[in-house]
Design a protein around this nucleic acid. Structure first.
Lengths: 157, 157
DNA sequence: CCAAACCGTTCTAGCCATGAATGATTTGGA
DNA sequence: TCCAAATCATTCATGGCTAGAACGGTTTGG
């Protein structure tokens, strides 16, 4: 395959997602440390808030992590008083995770923090660019079957 | 602070960067496994290709990783014949890393692979949306002082 | 009624990345 | 000129995060 591709690696979306994603993740992780949480903890909280995940196994599938990881995440959140475990009376193998008031409050705080980071991150963008970015992300998430995304309106034509 | 923020966590850019970034990183990592490389290896290759990083310490700063990690990355790439280490004659403490022909070739292959992934990823987007996404990424990278980015033209006004 | 499947949990192991300690080399000031 | 401090690369020990195997309790279907 002697055909040469003159696109530089740096110009690739894949690369940019990598560096920017790392930047955003790092900032977010540091902001969350204030509440003694990791990003995945918030992920779990949001799944519960959305009313998804009747069992821990389903949550694991939604979050695309190992079931055993959900256990430790839930342990931590339970110890923090953010969630409570209830045996499913219909199937006593299952644990039903429920957000406590404190859990809702915690999620709200984390969301507010993330929103502040968003503003900081996109400070150099015009409102139009910000909107375009958000719309593109929505489409990408929908196109790749990610959970927890809002269905983007079929605006373009 | 009784003031309630009604933005949902899912609607946050921070969240979307997290999930999409993970998706992209995972795909890319799996594609790279074919060449027995990790994303950071390609990061190092691209730094060298750009002519940056006179010493391993500078490379570590550019890549924002620990100097000791650069050692192991370079070890692997050297074993693969992609880079060679040369003692800097002017300062014999320094190792100068240089891309071999095989290194250039490897980087080109990885870039081509990433470009293919880009196309796959953005298949659901209109060309205008793709362009907007790329432009937004450029601005973000520039605004946050990331290395290896093209300086976006000062088009807006 | 029992074997197979299922759920949550614990425990072990692997990978990636960091930070401290080391040896070689250079530098700047007395 | 000479020596202490700084610098660079390297090695080693450590920690965090995650997956996977193994296990007990529970349900299901033949």
């Amino acid at each position: 395959m002697p055909l040469v591709n003159d696109v530089k690696w740096v110009e690739t979306l894949t690369f940019r997602f990598g560096v920017l994603g790392a930047l955003v993740a790092d900032r977010y992780a540091r902001a969350l440390a204030e509440h003694d949480l990791k990003p995945k903890h918030v992920g779990l909280l949001s799944v519960l808030d959305a009313g998804l995940g009747a069992s821990q196994l389903e949550i694991a599938k939604l979050m695309r992590v190992a079931p055993s990881l959900v256990v430790s995440l839930a342990d931590h959140l339970e110890a923090a008083g953010a969630v409570e475990r209830l045996r499913d009376p219909a199937d006593r193998r299952r644990q039903i995770l429920r957000l406590t008031d404190r859990g809702h409050d915690l999620l709200a705080r984390c969301t507010a923090r993330a929103t502040a980071l968003d503003a900081e991150l996109t400070a150099g963008l015009t409102p139009a660019q910000q909107a375009a970015l958000g719309a593109a992300f929505d489409r990408l998430a929908a196109a790749h079957g990610l959970p927890l995304h809002e269905d983007p309106d079929a605006t373009p034509r």
